[in-house]
């Protein structure tokens, strides 16, 4: 690797790469092409067979650190290994997906190697050979342009913000011998709700609010399932214990940017709007024609969600058939 390439840190769980990893690689390729440099991908805690999956997403080289200690994400072991790879490779830019793991690792790494870090980038441009990124602040109420002073610059990109591009050439795989160094964290257990689509990565989100009137979300769940989407909730629905905290969309929950966001019985408090207004298409169903959610919606239906949503589901089912 020549001095100043792009290094993409990938993320896999049980040998499956996260969608944001493909987005980070694709964006890394675009940066490398604009800068006239190479793109190297790093795979941690998985073997060559898994690394091959990354082949056609633009990496010139794929470095594989298949140490069993890295199988589960551990902040200290992962940071130690990535910092070591960074000191060997000397990249100018590091790109990572802003997942829970990506944010955690990049924050610790930035402090370790004294590097500037921008988390949740939604846009990357190159201005006179320098990177200029845009990231939301104040829960998405503001977009800020950021420049970096110092190398390597670290970009954690927000899931669902960058497009995935495939490339013909597959990168060459190199197996690395890595030292995980001193670790102080002990893994106890992992509990995953398998088969559930992650809210921040979903293409479609159907969310329910106070208008749901109770914990029975089956009417919107059916629509979400049909569209292959995820279920979301407003803060009031979560505060009422109708849905788990993990489903909360908003300034103190998750920020989502799916292709389609369907808000059902959500009035549209400013904190909720901040969490979903970067969605590409927004649909609102609400009884109250004055609900502020309608000001952020591309399409609105004024009506009872328990009547309207099943009909939407039915109409879509007709199309699918």
């Amino acid at each position: 690797m020549s001095q100043g390439d792009v290094l993409a840190i990938t993320e896999q769980s049980d040998n499956v790469f996260r969608k944001v990893t493909y987005e980070a690689l694709s964006e890394g390729r675009r940066i490398a092409d604009s800068m006239g440099c190479g793109l190297t991908a790093v795979v941690l805690g998985a073997g060559e067979n898994v690394a091959k999956e990354l082949g056609q997403y633009g990496a010139d080289r794929i470095l594989v650190a298949d140490n069993h200690v890295l199988n589960e994400y551990m902040a200290d072991a992962h940071t130690n290994v990535v910092a070591d790879i960074v000191s060997r490779e000397k990249p100018a830019t590091i790109i990572v997906g802003a997942s829970t793991q990506g944010k955690d690792m990049s924050a610790r790494l930035a402090a370790r190697i004294n590097a500037p870090l921008a988390i949740d980038c939604v846009d990357v441009r190159i201005d006179n050979g320098d990177l200029l990124v845009t990231r939301p602040m104040y829960g998405g109420k503001i977009l800020a342009d950021i420049v970096f002073d110092g190398k390597p610059q670290i970009l954690a990109i927000r899931p669902n913000s960058m497009s995935i591009a495939e490339h013909a050439a597959a990168g060459a795989i190199e197996i690395l011998d890595v030292d995980v160094g001193e670790t102080n964290l002990k893994f106890i257990e992992k509990k995953l709700d398998t088969g559930k689509i992650e809210l921040t990565e979903a293409d479609v989100v159907v969310a329910g609010g106070r208008g749901m009137g109770g914990s029975d979300f089956s009417v919107i769940e059916e629509l979400a399932d049909l569209l292959g989407g995820a279920l979301g909730a407003s803060r009031s629905a979560v505060d009422e214990d109708w849905r788990p905290l993990a489903d909360q969309v908003g300034q103190t929950g998750k920020v989502v940017s799916p292709n389609l966001y369907i808000a059902c019985g959500i009035s549209g408090a400013i904190q909720h709007l901040a969490g979903m207004s970067s969605s590409k298409v927004v649909v609102a169903v609400n009884k109250d024609p004055e609900a502020s959610i309608f000001s952020k919606a591309d399409y609105g239906i004024v009506g009872d969600l328990f009547e309207v949503v099943p009909l939407i589901t039915e109409e879509i089912r007709k199309l699918v058939k």
Partner: peptide
């Protein structure tokens, strides 16, 4: 090391 050079509002959604 990271410097804000500009702030803007997210693009306004077209009239729904």
């Amino acid at each position: 090391m990271t410097k804000i050079t500009a702030m803007k509002f997210p693009p306004e959604r077209k009239e729904g």
